[in-house]
């Protein structure tokens, strides 16, 4: 088990954070919403400059870690582009990206991009996917649109694991930001003659959020390692990560909104944008209940396998 990201990956993530900031930061998603037809143009040069599409997330542990760090940085600024989905593209199909789908209405946050997609279900059924014209403007849809699928094969188990894990890193970046914003707000905003941060009721909410965020970070590192090591239980680990991510998101965004008060709902507050644009990754392909249900069904009578030493954990009585 490896629970540490390499220093190179961490440094790459920091560079990406700065590059997105320099390219517009919070303004990126706002511009994309105003001009959805140009959303790719805004971020494509930054991603190219970062060498994003040269990263081989499937071949090399270091590059997978760099890809995860890039997703996290993109999430921090709610970058309006499917970075995780593109980094997870299948190695063998010549498409531009991978979207995990489930249920009867396959969809993804890939509206309005001239890209070729592969879709994969959690049980590994792959299809070629074409993005349908969006049924609603991004203000309502956050770029989610339906996908028309043409079945291909059933060889996508590893695709599904990676396709679930990388968007969780994006969501982790969003939670990093939500907590940073909440922290900054309570340190500055005064009520009853003192900063909100001095109220224990405020502090305790913040700590509830941080426990969720830091726990998610560790789960994300574990699942990244599990997938890279091609463990047979990598998909279970990816679902466990997704479950932790969705639970964390619910707590963190609830706390961040509550501590911001009314200003957090306003368009002038970055929180309102991060919060709205976190919706696609939190609802698709499986929401909280569906993720928990699928994980429980896959586990059946076997608990999660844990590989914390050199051997897999086994039941002892």
């Amino acid at each position: 088990m490896n629970i540490e990201l390499s220093e190179e990956a961490a440094e790459y993530g920091r560079q990406a954070l700065e590059a997105f900031k320099a390219a517009g930061g919070d303004g990126l998603v706002q511009q994309a919403e105003a001009e959805p037809g140009h959303r790719a143009e805004q971020v494509a040069p930054v991603l190219a400059e970062l060498g994003a599409w040269d990263l081989d997330a499937r071949g090399d542990a270091d590059e997978l870690e760099a890809a995860a760090a890039l997703c996290r940085s993109a999430g921090y600024w709610a970058v309006p582009y499917p970075v995780a989905e593109r980094l997870a593209r299948p190695a063998d199909l010549g498409t531009d990206g991978l979207v995990v789908v489930a249920g009867t209405a396959p969809a993804g946050a890939v509206a309005g991009l001239d890209l070729r997609w592969t879709a994969v279900t959690p049980d590994g059924r792959r299809a070629t996917a074409a993005a349908l014209p969006p049924a609603a403007p991004p203000r309502e849809s956050a770029f989610v649109t339906g996908l028309a699928l043409t079945p291909l094969d059933e060889a996508g188990a590893a695709d599904a694991a990676l396709g679930l894990v990388l968007p969780c890193w994006t969501l982790l970046g969003m939670l990093d930001r939500a907590i940073d914003l909440a922290r900054e707000h309570v340190l500055v905003r005064e009520q009853f003659g003192r900063p909100l941060a001095q109220f224990q009721g405020v502090q305790f909410q913040l700590t509830d959020a941080e426990v969720e965020r830091s726990g998610l970070e560790m789960m994300a590192r574990y699942a990244l390692w599990s997938g890279q090591a091609n463990l047979p239980e990598a998909l279970d680990d990816a679902l466990a990560l997704r479950l932790a991510a969705l639970e964390a998101a619910e707590t963190v965004f609830r706390v961040a909104h509550q501590l911001h008060g009314a200003i957090g709902f306003c368009d002038e507050s970055p929180l309102s944008w991060i919060s709205r644009y976190s919706q696609p990754v939190r609802r698709l392909p499986l929401g909280l209940s569906a993720t928990r249900d699928l994980l429980a069904r896959r586990l059946g009578r076997h608990a999660l396998t844990g590989r914390y030493g050199d051997v897999a954990e086994r039941v002892t009585s």
């Binding site: 629970i3 540490e4 830091s214 726990g215 998610l216 560790m218 789960m219 590192r221 574990y222 466990a240 479950l243 932790a244 639970e247 209940s289 928990r292 249900d293 994980l295 429980a296 586990l299 608990a303 999660l304 844990g306 914390y308």
Partner: peptide, 27 residues
Amino acid sequence: PDELRGRWAGALTRCRRARLLAYQVVA
């Protein structure tokens, strides 16, 4: 009930989370 088995799976996930948080401190 399915819901109870879901809670069981969720509790296992949080066992892993707590363990990894402990390992972070140990490291």
